[in-house]
């Protein structure tokens, strides 16, 4: 029962900790990250655009064209907006290594500042969804239930009930949402990367987007009350588990019950027999 000593007393404790953690992270973000995006760092808007354009030319233009007009390799980026750039680059999807059924997330190679610069440049080309402010995707404990309902209506069909991802056609898949940060989730809904549909602010209003994110954050930090979650994949992993671990455990018992008990060595048996005789 020692392990129980670490228990937390209140059901909401986890959520309170989570909310505090997020608030703390948000403060940090505000303290360190946000200023980089503003002119306070001394980088003027013009400089930012120039830097962004330089980065764009060196890293993106081979597929998306010199003026972001698009080529056979990549779509036009005019009007996709800063949110799209931030999502694609910060999740490492862009620049793409190779074109396949789906461009997958990988290690992001740019600094936050560089991403901001590129995003500003693309934004300047034709507008589009802006990078959301931190407050838009902050955890809201009161919105979790509504978020769950919206998640099950809009998201879980592809991403699974716990955001564990799922299969699409022709080898494509809806990725796991367990590592994606709230800003990226917001941007993904806003811009509809690759085959994901777009959920613009008219279709899912900002408050509802925040609710969905709150639900996801709650879900990923929620204990598996009943024990090991088996990947939160539903009945398939439960079936696999019972046919492996469960069956083996039960068969070991059956074997133990039915197997002959180890016999005494012949020598000992003979000794005992002799002793028995002598005793008589």
């Amino acid at each position: 029962m020692k392990s129980l000593s670490t228990r937390r007393r209140h059901p909401l404790a986890a959520f309170v900790v989570l909310a505090l953690g997020l608030a703390f992270a948000g403060t940090l973000f505000a303290a360190f990250v946000s200023p980089a995006a503003s002119a306070d760092t001394g980088e003027s808007a013009a400089q930012q655009l120039a830097n962004g354009k330089a980065l764009y030319i060196s890293s993106c233009s081979s597929c998306h064209g010199k003026n972001a007009e698009g080529t056979g390799l990549g779509p036009s980026l005019v009007g996709v907006g800063a949110a799209s750039v931030d999502f694609q680059v910060s999740t490492g999807r862009m620049p793409a290594k190779q074109l396949g059924a789906q461009v997958e997330a990988k290690q992001n190679i740019f600094s936050t500042q560089q991403i901001q610069d590129m995003a500003a440049y693309v934004q300047s080309l034709g507008g589009g969804p802006q990078i959301p402010a931190a407050g838009q995707y902050a955890y809201d404990a009161n919105a979790v239930a509504l978020g769950g309902q919206l998640f099950r209506e809009n998201c879980s069909q592809c991403h699974n009930f716990a955001g564990e991802g799922g299969a699409l056609t022709d080898g494509k898949f809806a990725p796991k949402l367990t590592q994606t940060n709230p800003q990226q989730i917001y941007e993904a809904m806003l811009t509809g990367p690759q085959n994901m549909p777009v959920f613009s602010d008219k279709v899912i209003p900002p408050a509802e987007k925040q609710a969905i994110i709150s639900y996801l954050l709650n879900s990923r930090n929620e204990p598996n009350y009943g024990g090991a979650g088996l990947g939160r994949l539903g009945p398939v992993s439960e079936g696999l588990f019972i046919w492996t671990v469960g069956l083996i455990a039960l068969l070991l018992c059956a074997v133990w019950i039915a197997a002959h008990t180890t016999k005494a060595s012949a020598q000992k048996a003979a000794q005992a027999a002799a002793a028995g005789k002598a005793g008589k």
Partner: peptide, 24 residues
């Protein structure tokens, strides 16, 4: 854990989840 129904949500005919499978 088995069948954590609270994560699946109540049944509504227009909702759906990936990995909708029956027991084995």
């Amino acid at each position: 854990s088995i069948n954590p129904i609270w994560t699946y949500g109540p049944y509504v005919p227009n909702e759906m989840t990936a990995g909708s499978q029956p027991d084995w």
